[in-house]
Amino acid sequence: MEKITTILFDLDGTLIPFDQEEFIKAYFYNLAKKFVPMGYDNDLLIKSIWAGTGSMVKNDGKVTNQEAFKVTFSKLMQREYDEMEQSFLDFYANEFDNAKSTLQEDVDRSEFIKALKDKGVKVVLATNPIFPKVAVQTRLNWIGLKLEDFDYVTTFENSHYCKPNLDYYREIFEKIGSNPNESIMVGNNALEDMISGELGVKTYLVTDNLENPNKVDIDQFENGSFDFIADKILEVI
């Protein structure tokens, strides 16, 4: 095996131990609590966010995910996203923190990430870039980490694709100057994260909060609990 120089981690359901559906419910519940009293229609707001998210997932790289989201969201809301942006950023920095209640256990990943950095590897937070940077930082707070603990973090401001588009991974490797054949991807989604293996990335599938909507055979991937995989990674680097 090539010497490992870079490790990519998914965030939701991987570094953060929660069920995605429970998290989304908590996210929209807290979003409504903030925006409905401001005069926004809850159903329209949620519909517009989902539609904007769909545009990011289908993004072909011509614009950032942020721009792709803004165009679709503004059209459906019949209100410019830019008018609401400060309220959104304020939400992600504050009320969004309440979604921490969906964590299944209290974990601190800081020592583990530091141990990887101490071994001289680049560490990338390869979270699907459908949220702004501030929302990523809020979630990292829950597990004892900061944006600065990573060599690169994908957000909707700096990304032009989403998982499972292989161009999402290609963009990361281009930006950080790493070779996919010398890299590991750790994630809990059997499609979105494991597809990186098609570029030559070594993959590890975290099964604690497994997402496998396509019912693929997970035995084709090295898989196990986060703690099991963390130990395996420390052995191979």
Rank of each mutant, 00 (worst) to 15 (best):
residue 1 M to R: 13
residue 2 E to N: 15
residue 4 I to G: 00
residue 7 I to K: 05
residue 26 A to T: 08
residue 29 Y to M: 07
residue 34 K to P: 08
residue 36 V to Y: 05
residue 39 G to S: 00
residue 42 N to T: 03
residue 42 N to C: 10
residue 48 S to V: 13
residue 51 A to R: 13
residue 51 A to D: 12
residue 53 T to H: 14
residue 53 T to R: 15
residue 57 V to T: 15
residue 59 N to F: 09
residue 63 V to F: 00
residue 66 Q to K: 13
residue 69 F to C: 10
residue 70 K to P: 02
residue 74 S to F: 04
residue 76 L to H: 03
residue 77 M to V: 03
residue 83 E to G: 02
residue 89 L to M: 06
residue 105 E to D: 01
residue 110 S to F: 04
residue 113 I to T: 06
residue 123 V to W: 00
residue 123 V to S: 03
residue 131 F to C: 04
residue 135 A to G: 12
residue 141 N to F: 00
residue 144 G to W: 01
residue 145 L to Q: 00
residue 147 L to G: 09
residue 148 E to H: 05
residue 149 D to L: 13
residue 157 E to K: 11
residue 159 S to G: 10
residue 162 C to Y: 14
residue 162 C to K: 14
residue 165 N to M: 15
residue 167 D to F: 11
residue 172 I to Q: 06
residue 173 F to S: 09
residue 174 E to C: 11
residue 179 N to F: 11
residue 180 P to S: 10
residue 181 N to E: 15
residue 183 S to K: 15
residue 185 M to G: 12
residue 186 V to A: 03
residue 194 M to P: 07
residue 196 S to M: 12
residue 200 G to A: 04
residue 201 V to P: 03
residue 202 K to Q: 09
residue 202 K to D: 07
residue 207 T to G: 08
residue 207 T to C: 02
residue 211 E to T: 15
residue 218 I to P: 05
residue 218 I to T: 03
residue 219 D to V: 11
residue 223 N to Y: 08
